[in-house]
Nucleic acid binder design. Structure first.
Length: 473
DNA sequence: TGAAATGTTGGGGCG
DNA sequence: ACGCCCCAACATTTC
């Protein structure tokens, strides 16, 4: 008996329910389809770079077993049909996805394949709990995180991950070469990524066990300091399913048996909870990929300011903590979460540029660019989403910098032209007096940009603009 | 998972 | 010893 296992965002062999169930039945055809015609919400440019290496690793792991990953390029439906014909497979397995276009495609395929008499089964490989398993007391979906979290952790979640199965793969199937997919960018933009990252499920497992064994205990204290390695950096692993959230949950609980009563572990698992919440929301409110969850924000007067958007993207706003974050993103494909909130607040509230513009840039440049988490994060920042930062919550980029990067290590790393500026004015160089900047080799407007606007004025402008949506739900 | 404005309190300098 | 002022430190409210 042969089962096609269609890999998507689950590029691992351990704790992979679709694969596990297939291997128990007999032969497995591990398939990855690269469909160039898919819409924009599947992979950003940075994510494609990651995908290349993650697929390479998955293939290598299968080869350790004498198997191989079958990669096919083409229209999803046609590829599936031809693989089914070639293999005479009667069974198709995959792990579910929850974004609107993924659901649409999978539902249509499932119907079509079942009509042909095939056995099509989908599994939960990407979430701790399915979005429809958690309901409010009135039976609806959650829109607030805390009660969602309470409900989630009221369930028994310590489930041992599924073992990696032995895969026996029928021979003679052709595979396209990974290089032919051209997943890596043509520009040299991504060349530096490999200095910071080792994609693939092997490195993912190592990163998780090292993190769960030590640093997670200090997550609560250190997660807000962008200069410190206080976060897990597991986000791309979860994005591509090199790890399942259940594996993460399990690993943390092994080292912290009462993880939810432990400051560090609880704060960390809560972030897994936010990921679950993001999937819950995108499943129940699919329109929020593009449209604000709170309808009154439809009439918000966003500005069209392409030059300012570009300065934000390039890390040239003149606000050091913002520029440091945007440059870290460009150079490493990742940004510290505290800084993500700061740069998002800056785009949306200081510049009054729509959260959709920010979401698009993040999705394309983040290695962990995930449509559910990205949408939640940006709607949160914009004040128009579930459990969002209220419209009047406007981050002050100077005081945020001074609070979370007090000795300026982070800013100096990513904005080297400010490296000699004394701490006192590092986060507000435009307020330096006399010769202070010249002595550090800085001339505003030449070696480092003048700030886009004045924070105080921007704040007042934002508060005024948000009057439009004030009061209404 | 804010920041700024406004209010309150209490210590210390000073006439 | 007293009233007055200043201002940090903290709390509350407002956006």
């Amino acid at each position: 008996m042969t089962t096609v296992v269609w890999f998507r965002n689950d590029l691992r062999l351990v704790d992979n329910p679709a694969l596990h169930a297939a291997a128990a039945k007999g032969d497995v055809v591990p398939l990855f389809i690269w469909d160039p015609g898919l819409g924009p919400h599947h992979y950003g440019a940075a994510a494609r770079w990651w995908l290349h290496y993650s697929l390479e690793t998955l293939d290598a792991r299968l080869r350790d077993q004498g198997a191989t990953l079958i990669i096919r390029q083409g229209e999803t439906r046609e590829v599936l049909q031809s693989v089914i014909q070639e293999t005479k497979a009667k069974h198709i397995h995959w792990n579910r996805r929850y974004d609107p276009s993924g659901i649409e495609l999978d539902t249509a395929l499932k119907t079509e394949l079942q009509k042909q008499g095939l056995d099509v089964q989908s599994f939960n490989g990407n979430l701790v709990m399915e979005p429809w398993e958690l309901k409010t007391k009135t039976g609806g979906p959650y829109k607030v995180f805390s009660p969602f979290w309470k409900n989630l952790i009221s369930h028994p979640l310590m489930v041992a991950p599924l073992e990696e199965p032995d895969c026996s793969v029928p021979s003679g199937l052709s595979s396209d070469r990974l290089e032919e997919l051209n997943l890596r960018p043509v520009l040299d933009w991504a060349d530096g990524f490999s200095e910071d990252w080792e994609p693939g499920c092997v490195a993912a497992a190592a990163t998780l066990s090292a993190y769960a064994a030590g640093p997670v205990a200090h997550y609560h204290d250190q997660r807000n300091l962008p200069a410190v390695e206080g976060t897990s950096r597991l986000s791309p692993r979860l994005r591509f399913g090199e790890l399942s959230p259940r594996q993460v949950w399990h690993a943390v609980n092994q080292h912290h048996p009462n993880a939810l009563d432990d400051e560090g572990a609880e704060a960390f698992l809560r972030e897994i909870g936010w990921r679950e919440f993001a999937y819950h929301l995108i499943y129940h409110f699919p329109a929020t990929v593009n449209a604000p969850l709170r309808p009154n924000f439809e009439r918000f007067p966003w500005r069209d300011a392409p030059d300012e958007l570009k300065r934000w993207q390039q890390g040239m706003t003149g606000f050091p903590i913002v520029d440091a974050g945007m440059r870290q993103l460009w150079h490493t494909g990742w940004m510290h979460n505290r800084v993500r909130m700061i740069v998002a607040s800056f785009l949306v509230k200081n510049l009054l540029i729509s959260w959709q513009e920010g979401a698009e840039w993040f999705f394309d440049t983040l290695l962990d660019g995930d449509i559910a988490s990205n949408t939640l994060g940006w709607q949160w920042a914009g004040g128009c989403g579930a459990d969002a930062a209220p419209y009047f919550r406007i981050f002050n980029p100077m005081s945020q910098g001074e609070k979370f990067d007090p000795d300026g290590t982070y800013v100096r790393r990513w904005v080297p032209e400010l490296s000699s500026v004394p701490n006192k004015v590092l986060h507000r160089p435009f307020e330096a007096k006399g010769m202070e900047l010249q002595l550090s080799g800085v001339t505003l407007g030449q070696t480092y940009p003048q700030p886009i606007g004045e924070h105080k004025k921007a704040r007042e402008r934002a508060l005024k603009a948000f009057d439009v949506v004030k009061g209404a739900a």
